[in-house]
């Protein structure tokens, strides 16, 4: 096991940020922590990177205890905090060289590991980090986190504030790093990125709602979701919420996702009901379940 978390809890004053979390990440796995802001992802990352002490529970990273062996952990993990945390007044090259020296290595030593990423920012290597675009900053931060060939890589919301193209590229890079044997724990508030992980933990308000592979999570979901659309979305949302057998209604892109309480739900009845309400250009069709649907449902259940 690369990461083992046992019953970890952490509270700030009286706010419980992380509540009795337990999970494991296998070696070489790309594990995703999926949850909205304030779910406790950053706190968990800081506990695992030995920056914070948990109030309760134990955890190990790469076989080392996060409290006792914090020094050993600090030399074998790579950490990329959520906030861009490199020296803005240093150039790309200077940042990389600095992190290489403090980890007792050289840029050339693990060059094959960062090559794919580095070649993309190399043309700007004389530019100061503060003047880079969001995507380039992200790539530089990843390079710096990788420079000492860590065994475990912690990426806290690496794609927040990055454009969609860069996000896609970033995940491709992660996949390639994983093939080189690095265990990766990544957190993200974007549900669509969940499908790119080997396994994910859905996390909300400091608790884990579910841990599984993205496919299994979707397959195990037993309810049927319908995409509903009409000309007047606002009115549609209101009418659907008033439908007697509705289980859950929420906006999802251009559609509204509707789930009924009854398994024997017939969409024709709903269509008639909505037509009576005067909806035009009505569309009702079965939808493909996404991680976000499962997440919304689990969150509702909990409340």
């Amino acid at each position: 096991m690369s990461i083992q978390v046992q019953n970890i809890s952490k509270s700030y004053q009286n706010n419980l940020a992380v509540n009795a979390l337990t999970f494991e990440v296998k070696e070489g796995e790309l594990f995703g922590l999926i949850g909205p802001d304030g779910a406790g992802k950053t706190t968990l990352f800081r506990i695992l990177t030995t920056l914070l002490l948990a109030n309760e529970g134990t955890a190990t990273v790469a076989g080392f205890d996060v409290v006792k062996d914090y020094k050993s952990i600090r030399s074998v993990v790579g950490y990329m905090p959520g906030k861009f945390s490199l020296y803005q007044d240093l150039t790309i090259e200077e940042n990389l060289n600095f992190f290489a020296t403090i980890f007792g290595t050289k840029l050339e030593e693990n060059y094959d590991l960062i090559k794919d990423i580095y070649v993309q920012i190399e043309p700007f290597k004389k530019r100061r980090a503060g003047k880079l675009s969001g995507g380039m900053k992200q790539k530089l931060a990843l390079c710096c986190a990788l420079i000492h060939k860590p065994k475990v890589l912690f990426l806290d919301e690496p794609t927040t504030g990055v454009d969609p193209v860069s996000r896609k590229e970033f995940w491709e890079m992660l996949k390639r790093l994983q093939q080189k044997g690095i265990t990766i724990l990544v957190s993200t508030p974007y549900m669509d990125e969940a499908a790119l992980c080997d396994r994910i933990a859905l996390i909300q308000k400091g608790s884990i709602l579910k841990i599984d592979t993205p496919d299994q999570i979707i397959q195990n979901y037993d309810k049927t979701i319908y995409d509903v659309q009409s000309k007047n979305t606002h009115q549609l949302l209101h009418d659907l919420k008033n439908y007697p057998t509705q289980y859950s209604v929420f906006a999802f892109g251009e559609f509204i996702h509707y789930i009924d309480k009854n398994e024997a739900f017939n969409s024709d009845e709903l269509e008639n009901y909505l037509k009576e309400k005067g909806h035009q250009e009505l569309v009702i069709k079965k939808s493909k379940t996404t991680i976000e649907d499962v997440f919304m449902d689990l969150t509702n259940l909990k409340q």
Binding site: T50, Y79, P81, S85, L86, Q88, F99, I102, F103
Partner: peptide, 14 residues
């Protein structure tokens, strides 16, 4: 303030 301390702490520097 800039968060770089976080990275310095998670490094072998004592």
């Amino acid at each position: 303030e800039l968060g770089t301390m976080e990275i310095l702490l998670v490094s072998p520097l004592n």
